[in-house]
């Protein structure tokens, strides 16, 4: 297992407190996590453990109430919304449980979308999108809309999209949650393939079998990482 010492995402004592009327909900209670470049980390936890909130934090979709989040050394809690969106678009690729493709756009256009937001030229966008869709073995489906694709195919388009801007980190949130076990395996195959090409993969799941694919499993309980670590070599 290759491992450098450089952190790509580092959470330091992150608290997230939601106020719902008079009630304060402490979704994260001092979460610390250090993901190094090229790692494959699984975050596992039962429902209610603050998993979704953790995904939002790791994915820089939200900023913590207290604590620090460093993305490639930069403190994101100090950034404005638009800078954050730009950085997210460049450095993190999302793979969602519900695929979350844009229904009105074709597979090709969906894959090009993150590049549109980064101002990539149309020519480069098309070239890259074709390459990526070919890589996930959907080269013959580029003009199909999501509704014309199976769940597994949609998730592969989503994986291609997550790679559009060549991000360092792929954040997969229950990537096989909406798929049957066979297509789920195929999706896992692609994620592992990405890991081999040097991407950092962070996968959030409740599924033990999936978590086993990772280099390292972190258990999230009650809004923080359980100290006992299970390492695989």
């Amino acid at each position: 297992m290759k491992k450098t010492q450089k952190s790509i995402i580092k959470l330091e004592n992150v608290w997230k407190i939601y106020e719902m009327g008079d009630v304060k909900v402490e979704a994260l209670r001092g979460l610390s996590l250090d993901v190094k470049k090229h790692e494959f980390v699984a975050i596992k936890g039962p429902s209610g453990s603050g998993k979704s909130t953790a995904v939002n934090m790791v994915g820089c979709l939200d900023i913590p109430s207290t604590g620090k989040i460093l993305l490639d050394g930069e403190d994101i809690s100090l950034m404005g919304e638009s800078d954050l969106a730009q950085i997210r678009g460049r450095k993190i690729g999302f793979v969602f449980q519900k695929f979350n493709l844009i229904p009105t756009l074709t597979a090709m256009e969906n894959v090009m979308l993150p590049m549109v937001f980064q101002g990539t030229t149309a020519e480069d966008r098309q070239k890259r999108a074709k390459e990526l869709l070919t890589m996930v073995e959907l080269g013959d489906r580029i003009d199909h809309r999501p509704s014309e694709l199976s769940g597994g195919q949609q998730q592969r388009v989503a994986i291609a999209r997550s790679l559009a801007n060549d991000p360092e980190v792929i954040l997969a949130d229950e990537p096989t949650g909406n798929l049957d076990s066979k297509t789920g395996k195929m999706v896992m195959f692609f994620l592992k393939k990405l890991h081999k090409t040097g991407k950092t993969i962070i996968m959030v799941t409740h599924d033990d079998k999936l978590a086993k694919h990772a280099d390292r499993i972190e258990h999230l309980i009650d809004g923080k990482i359980e100290q006992k670590r299970k390492k695989r070599g």
Partner: peptide, 9 residues
């Protein structure tokens, strides 16, 4: 979704 993949306001 668009915001998470990099769309600004």
């Amino acid at each position: 979704v668009m915001k998470s993949i990099g769309a600004t306001n």
